[in-house]
Amino acid sequence: MKKKDILEAYRWRQATKAFDADRKIKEEDMEFILETGRLSPSSFGFEPWQFVVVRREDLLQKIKDHAWGAQGQALTASHFVLILARTPKAMRYDADYIRHIVTGVQGRTEEEYAQRVKRVQEFQENDYRLLDDERVFQEWIKRQTYIPLGNMMTAAAQIEIDSCPIEGFNQEEIDELLISEGVMERGEWSLSVMVAFGYRARDFAPKTRRDFNEVVKYIG
């Protein structure tokens, strides 16, 4: 894909508030979008996310009832995705999940694991002081999930599929809903953001953004 085609996809993409409920994304296209999320980078390569594709209409209705930001998307989008973030419990330097990632996924030796954990401990304790405040730690984890969010939305735009990121919800209420519905385990996951995919119900006005020179600054 040429640079001008990539930029055109960025210009074309808009936050779609209402989708054409009759148009559905092909499964192979949706798998492509999700794969770009799976391949996204994360701090230390720890992949602190899970993508939950909600197909149950009753659950989509409950999500709509609890998420003011999803009123026009939850029931009209072709695919509605919850991006879950791991909790600080799972992301501490000494957690079982970190061992699984370093040794099981990344294939590091025990010696390499010990070295990596020492560096992560230093990062969490001193560099970002994540262990001092659980909320700060959780927000740091959730920031990681916005990387696959952006990648999936951009990949979708490049194949002319619309999307809309959604964070208009009460955190405690939506987490309790997802726990009660068996979507995630208490203490292991928290909802970070939602994203709807499908096809726009109507055209948009041209996108507006600040001028390039107002946004970009060069030093030296």
Rank of each mutant, 00 (worst) to 15 (best):
Q124R: 04
L60H: 07
K64Y: 05
L130H: 05
A85G: 15
V105L: 13
R92F: 09
V117R: 15
L75T: 07
H100E: 13
L7I: 15
R209T: 13
V105C: 00
G187L: 06
Q171Y: 08
R86S: 08
P206H: 08
D5T: 12
M184L: 14
A67W: 03
M153R: 05
Q171N: 11
P165K: 02
M194I: 07
E27Y: 02
L131Y: 10
Y93P: 08
K207S: 10
A77D: 09
K118Y: 09
E214F: 04
E139Y: 10
K62H: 03
K24G: 03
D65T: 02
W68H: 14
D29K: 10
V193S: 10
D133V: 03
A205N: 10
F46K: 10
E125R: 15
E188M: 09
Q124V: 04
W189H: 12
M1H: 08
L178R: 01
F197K: 05
I83G: 05
E57Q: 13
G72D: 08
E31W: 03
Q121K: 15
D175T: 09
V105M: 11
R143C: 09
V216F: 15
A18M: 10
I141R: 00
E167C: 06
D203H: 11
I101F: 03
R202T: 11
F123D: 14
C164S: 12
G198H: 04
G45H: 00
D22M: 09
D96C: 01
A21I: 05
R202L: 04
L191N: 02
M153P: 02
E111A: 13
R108C: 13
F19S: 05
F169P: 04
E125K: 14
S40I: 03
M30D: 07
E28D: 15
G220D: 13
L177C: 11
R23H: 07
M91T: 02
V195Q: 04
R108A: 12
Q115Y: 09
K17M: 09
P165Q: 02
P165T: 01
K24H: 08
A15F: 01
I141L: 10
D132L: 12
L149D: 08
G69R: 03
E139G: 00
L60T: 01
G37C: 07
I98N: 08
Q158R: 06
L131Q: 11
T36W: 10
G187W: 01
M194L: 13
E47K: 11
R116D: 06
Q106W: 00
L82I: 13
K4R: 12
G37M: 00
I161G: 01
L39Y: 08
Q115G: 14
A196G: 08
E112Q: 15
D96M: 08
K62Q: 13
E160Y: 11
T145F: 02
M194E: 05
D211H: 14
V54N: 05
L7P: 05
E35I: 02
A205E: 14
Q124K: 04
R116E: 12
N213A: 11
F137R: 02
R13G: 03
V117T: 14
L39I: 02
A196I: 05
D29T: 05
F212C: 04
T145S: 11
K89W: 01
R108P: 02
